[in-house]
Computed example of a mutant assay.
Amino acid sequence: MARLLLVLVATTMLLLAAGATAQQHGCENATFQAGRSFERCHTLPVLEASLYWTYHAANGTAEIAFRAQSNATGWVAWGINPSASGGMAGSNVFVASLGGSGAVSVLTTILKTTSPTLDNTTLSFAVPVPPTAEYAAGAYTIYVTVALPGNSTQQNTVWQAGPLSGGAIMAHLMSGPNLQSVKRQDFLSG
């Protein structure tokens, strides 16, 4: 009987600890600028990032907020790779970084290779609302509305983080979590 009681107490404590950890690291309690809100969220598996979205079936768009931890001398990026292969090469991405004036800018680019030139370009899918971003409390948040490629709710997504040098975006690490930051995302069911 004492052993059963000990097991029950230990199990209860583990469940409570897991719940507290999930609340601290989960995405459900996030707040956003200007009262924005999103219907769904996922805490992404690497790079201390989360994805929030609302899918609009009527027009095939998704309102998205991507949030990732970074220091002010870093950058973060999130994007969709419309090709069947997924991965970084071929991805259409939004890159947020702090400029010299302290304002956050968003660069849109298509990563043609795994060692891309980051030129500001029009993406291969519609972005009906210009992207914006903010930096607060040690994290960047990128806000974007996209027409999901192929009108499909299933998309290959990528995200990344790296350093700045003199305001210029530098290459991210080529190991560990930086190579694991890909996910097949379902914007309809989550």
Rank of each mutant, 00 (worst) to 15 (best):
A65I: 02
T122I: 02
V129F: 01
S83C: 01
Y135S: 02
T108C: 07
T113G: 12
A57I: 00
A137P: 13
F66W: 04
E48V: 05
A89N: 15
A65E: 07
T43P: 06
W75N: 13
I80R: 08
I64P: 09
S124K: 12
V95L: 14
A126R: 12
G86R: 12
V95N: 05
A57S: 14
E134K: 08
M88G: 11
A57G: 00
I110C: 05
T117Q: 15
N81G: 05
L111C: 09
G99W: 01
S101T: 11
N92H: 08
W53L: 03
S105N: 08
H42I: 07
V76E: 04
V129H: 04
W53D: 10
Y55I: 02
T61M: 03
V106I: 09
A103R: 12
E39G: 12
T109S: 15
P82E: 06
N81W: 02
A136C: 02
L98P: 02
N120G: 01
V95C: 04
A62R: 09
E63N: 07
A72V: 13
V93W: 03
V104E: 07
G74N: 10
A62Q: 10
P45I: 01
T109W: 04
T73V: 02
G102M: 05
I110S: 13
Y52N: 13
S97P: 00
L118F: 10
N92S: 13
K112E: 15
A89Q: 15
Y55E: 11
T122D: 12
T109D: 04
S91A: 15
V93Q: 10
A103K: 07
P130W: 00
T73C: 00
G74H: 11
